[in-house]
């Protein structure tokens, strides 16, 4: 049973291979994403995060999920020596870089709580897999060709892992640096990270991408993570354990 909706400016697909899957469960998952959007979108005037930034809420009034996300942000900040900081110079919070992976992971947990054992949740190309697909095999995940988004350039097989891809938007051979608009970005076009769950994969893919060509080395050093990095010339560099995921029956 599969359903796709567009929320939070991206396509979200949930597929459940369990025979006990139901429309109600799918609805519940999408309602959760709507709740996340309404709570954490810094572009919504009424969201909890916006109200916090307007000083309309005191810490004692924060919701449980808000407290969790802020705590996770603080933890990630420490783990990256301050690189991943959701607090802007003016003191406002913007946890959006962390919320996406967290929300996908939480959606997967929700499905588990409803007894689902075989499913995936895909939000904007970041994915949490669980169990097997309808054919009883591992979920096959294609890595999109950053130079031709209708193509895939690699297939990995997952059953309980999370996978996330960070990349630049590009058109033809031009990739613009978001900070210096006149300059084309050099080197890395995308990096895909497989990790123990999508939350971890997403935040480390984000960090690795920001490191440019050094990102794949960062992933190589992280225990439990593998990566596939594509540069502007269409050359890919993979971590030493990555190829194990390309075997459907490994």
């Amino acid at each position: 049973m599969t359903e796709t909706r567009t929320l939070m400016g991206m396509t979200i697909t949930v597929e459940i291979a369990d025979t006990s899957a139901s429309k109600d469960i799918l609805d519940e998952v999408f309602a959760f994403f709507e709740y996340v959007d309404a709570t954490f979108s810094t572009y919504k005037d009424t969201s909890e995060i916006t109200r916090i930034n307007k000083k309309e809420l005191r810490p004692a009034d924060y919701g449980e999920d808000m407290k969790t996300v802020l705590a996770l942000s603080e933890q990630t900040k420490k783990e990256t020596n301050g690189y991943f900081d959701i607090i802007a110079p003016d003191g406002t919070y913007d946890p959006s870089g962390l919320v996406k992976g967290w929300a996908i992971y939480r959606a997967a947990q929700l499905l588990e709580q409803r007894g689902m054992k075989h499913f995936y949740v895909n939000a904007g190309g970041d994915i949490q897999t669980r169990g097997k697909n309808n054919a009883g095999e591992k979920w096959s995940v294609g890595i999109k060709n950053p130079f031709n988004t209708k193509e895939i350039v690699k297939t990995v097989f997952l059953q309980n892992e999370g996978v996330a891809t960070s990349g630049t938007y590009l058109r033809g051979q031009h990739i613009w640096n978001p900070k210096k608009r006149s300059e084309a970005l050099t080197e890395i076009v995308s990096i895909t990270v497989i990790g123990p769950n999508v939350y971890e994969a997403d935040r480390f893919a984000t960090a690795a991408f920001a490191m440019g060509k050094d990102g794949i080395g960062f992933i190589e050093k992280l225990s439990g993570f593998e990566g596939y990095q594509i540069d502007k010339n269409g050359m890919a560099t993979m971590t030493s354990g990555f190829e194990e995921y390309t075997n459907a029956h490994a």
Partner: peptide, 19 residues
């Protein structure tokens, strides 16, 4: 680390990861 030239695949997949 191992490198390779990327190449389009024809494989049918369940899901696609990309930015």
């Amino acid at each position: 680390l191992k490198m390779e030239a990327i190449r389009a695949q024809n494989a049918q997949v369940n899901i696609i990861s990309g930015a």
